[in-house]
Simulated assay, not measured.
Amino acid sequence: MDAGEDELISIGVFAARVRLSAKALRLYDRLGLLPPAYVDPVSGYRYYRPEQVERARTIVHLRHLDMPLAEVAEVVALMGRDGPAAAERVGAYWADVEARLAGQRALVDFLRARLDGRTSLMSERYTTETADVPGCTVLSLKRHVLVGELPAWIGTTLDRLHAVAAEECGGVAAAPFVVYHSEVSQESDGPAEVCVPVRDARAAREWAARHGNGVGVREEPARRLAYTRITKAEVAQPMILNAFEAVERWITERDLRVAGPCREVYFADWAAAGPTDPVCDVAYPVRTPSGP
């Protein structure tokens, strides 16, 4: 061993001290999360230093939160140089977990009620109404996307189109929305279309002609929408599917006809909203059987 060998701790002793198996320590070494301080060139045996104990215990705590290893690596990389940033990263991860759990909790309540025969829960949880929405000019971006990619893609695209609308097209004229032209699931990729209504149609077309890079401009016709309002937690998959189902059932019960692809209308500030705050209308364009 090199100088300072008295400070080195064998992998067995280190594993017991930090409550990790030797197998886990070897994995974390391969991933670059917790490389040993010294590896015997002959035996390949690993040794650690006392100052690595805190890093190892932090990894253990993060894994107890079910944090993926890639995100654990991000936090650990920040530990030595920017503690507040590391703490913020943990907070952001847990906020995402709580949002997901809120959606799953609502889904569990819904499924328990459905399975034990309380079918009235559908109408109790979701109140469906209609609204007449005027036509508008929209900036839009359409893409084939699977359900796991959907939240990040919607968020990024909305930010992009909002910025263009504000800077180039006279501002945002109405709530943005996402149109599903075909099913989006783990196996089906839509396409889906993000739309942001703009105030200046001419400016939007000129901008798209110069800089569109996939972004188009189109006229969205006036529509009558049947919709139900949901919270931020309920937007998560698969809970949101129950809202779509509730609107579909309401439409059928009233002998209306679906007159276009389903959509999500985002009327609230997503970043500022909490899990139980209303943020989105799940909607279908509708008409009467004799209507246009």
Rank of each mutant, 00 (worst) to 15 (best):
M122R: 14
L65N: 12
R210H: 12
C169W: 01
E54T: 14
Y38V: 04
S182K: 15
A243W: 00
R254A: 06
A3D: 12
G135C: 11
M67E: 09
L158I: 08
G214R: 06
T127M: 01
T128G: 01
A222S: 09
G190E: 12
Y38N: 09
A152N: 13
Q52E: 08
V75P: 06
R30C: 09
R57E: 06
M1Q: 12
D159A: 14
E219T: 14
T119S: 15
H144T: 06
P221G: 14
R118L: 13
G274S: 10
V217I: 13
A208V: 01
L158F: 13
V18G: 00
D200C: 14
E98C: 10
R89H: 11
L107F: 11
G91A: 15
E183H: 15
E7V: 08
D189W: 02
V178G: 06
W153M: 15
W250Y: 02
T127W: 00
A16K: 15
R125K: 11
L34D: 02
R257T: 06
K232N: 04
V145T: 03
T288N: 06
A92C: 09
L225H: 02
I59D: 01
Y38G: 05
A24R: 02
V97P: 07
A95Q: 14
E206W: 03
M67D: 06
I230Y: 00
R143V: 10
Y227H: 04
E124L: 08
G260V: 07
E220P: 09
A222R: 03
T157N: 04
E149K: 10
I240V: 07
E168Y: 05
E264H: 12
D132L: 07
A203D: 05
V178L: 10
A272F: 13
P35M: 11
T276V: 10
Y28C: 05
A203C: 02
W250S: 07
H61G: 08
A209R: 15
L158N: 13
L33H: 00
L107P: 02
I59S: 00
L150G: 01
C169T: 11
C280A: 00
R114Y: 07
H144G: 10
A203T: 10
V133S: 06
A208S: 03
A236K: 02
G44S: 04
P191G: 02
W270T: 09
M1D: 05
D132N: 00
L27C: 08
D277W: 09
A70H: 14
A233T: 00
I9M: 12
L25H: 01
N242R: 07
D82Y: 06
S188D: 08
L62D: 05
Y38C: 03
V172F: 02
T157L: 12
A204L: 04
C169H: 14
A77K: 08
A259N: 07
A99R: 15
Y93N: 09
A201Y: 01
A24F: 05
G135A: 07
T288D: 03
V184W: 02
Y126F: 10
E219G: 11
Q186H: 11
A203V: 12
A113M: 10
E248L: 15
D109H: 14
D6A: 15
I9Y: 01
P36Q: 14
A77W: 08
A283P: 03
